[in-house]
Design a protein around this nucleic acid. Structure first.
Lengths: 199, 199
DNA sequence: GTCCATCTTGAGGTACTACTCAACTTACCG
DNA sequence: CGGTAAGTTGAGTAGTACCTCAAGATGGAC
């Protein structure tokens, strides 16, 4: 609404850039809950400046993470779209999401909505949540996914992956369990592209 | 080994009792990572006394939790033993464990081995880990459980339940995912009590 | 009753992290 | 060049939790 990005003094703008770069680095390494003092240190400015420029952790998050999260999720969305069947698309989506969550603590926190006040980030992630729900619906219509595997189930599955990811002492193999849960929901029905639409 | 529980002054013994009672209460409510200061407060003694009597969190844990954990796990073991088939026993075990983990944060931490230095507790829980592995083996021999669902998978499944349990903002429905993972591993083969033992 | 080994106490040190604000510094207008 | 609004700084306050230890209290043997 209000484009009040009036005239920021040059040093202030420079510091914002440094802080954003540092935030990206630290958040990606340690998750969105990383100490803000560390970000300030990496940026080479004082904590006071960080608070002056961004005010809250959420504002800082919103100013750097939606961009990278959006790009990664969009990329995944494209890979998903390339799938020939709904089943293939949903599988690509699930494994892609779990990979993203595993590779980047910041993405993981984002996907798990650990900072709901970071509204821009939440919005960004909402898109891929809808995609997930859509894919489940498509697979239902295609007949390849059991109807009792719901969109909510997909959400829970990804939430559990995120939770497991946060634990450094996670036993190798937790992923097998989730994979199994999804795999059990595929029907053996041949895909019928001309399935009826009326319930 | 060394029964050096020589002669503790009466006040010291009383305080130990008070501390153990408080520890049981607080641990059960908040998990084994609960602030020791709070336990001392509930017991009505100072933190110093807690450290004098027990030295470490792990020692305190070991002095109260194995008893209750052992009893709960033994109880579950009995319920399990009453199952007619290996499948029934394993199902009782898994759902019973998840229930225990859900009902008591202390049990949850115990089962997840969050305090490996609490050796007595770890030993207590080891028994039920073996039981789990046994039950998987039994179900394999019975033919009711797919061979690619291993004892390790069982451990991972329970570990994930424990992880999910610790999050207060857990989405309802995570349990459905785990249930699905186990359910997918049942074969439809009729149980053959006279299955061959030689591989 | 006395006395002292045994116990208890709780303020204080350490280590994190969040967040603030008075004093200082600097970009930039004229 | 000032002058000053805008910006930076970092020590300080606050909250959480762990763990310690010198000083004081007390059980119980004699």
């Amino acid at each position: 609404m209000a484009a009040q990005a009036k005239t920021l003094r040059r040093d202030a703008r420079d510091n914002m850039a440094k802080l954003r770069a540092a935030a990206l680095e630290v958040f990606s390494a340690k998750g969105l809950g990383a100490p803000l003092e560390e970000i300030a240190k990496v940026a080479g400015v004082s904590v006071g400046t960080l608070y002056n420029r961004f005010g809250t952790r959420e504002a800082l998050i919103d100013s750097v993470i939606p961009e990278i999260a959006g790009s990664r999720l969009k990329e995944l969305g494209e890979k998903v779209a390339a799938g020939a069947t709904a089943r293939e698309r949903l599988e690509t989506f699930v494994h892609g999401m779990i990979d993203l969550q595993h590779q980047d603590p910041a993405l993981n926190d984002a996907i798990m909505r650990r900072f709901p006040e970071a509204t821009a980030l939440v919005d960004t992630c909402a898109a891929s949540s809808s995609l997930g729900r859509d894919l489940v619906d498509q697979a239902h219509r295609e007949g390849s996914l059991a109807l009792d595997f719901t969109g909510e189930d997909l959400f829970c599955l990804l939430w559990m992956a995120g939770t497991a990811n946060r634990e450094e002492a996670a036993p190798l193999g937790w992923r097998r369990i989730l994979t199994r849960a999804l795999d059990s929901a595929w029907t053996d029905q041949a895909q019928t592209p001309a399935a009826s639409d009326t319930p």
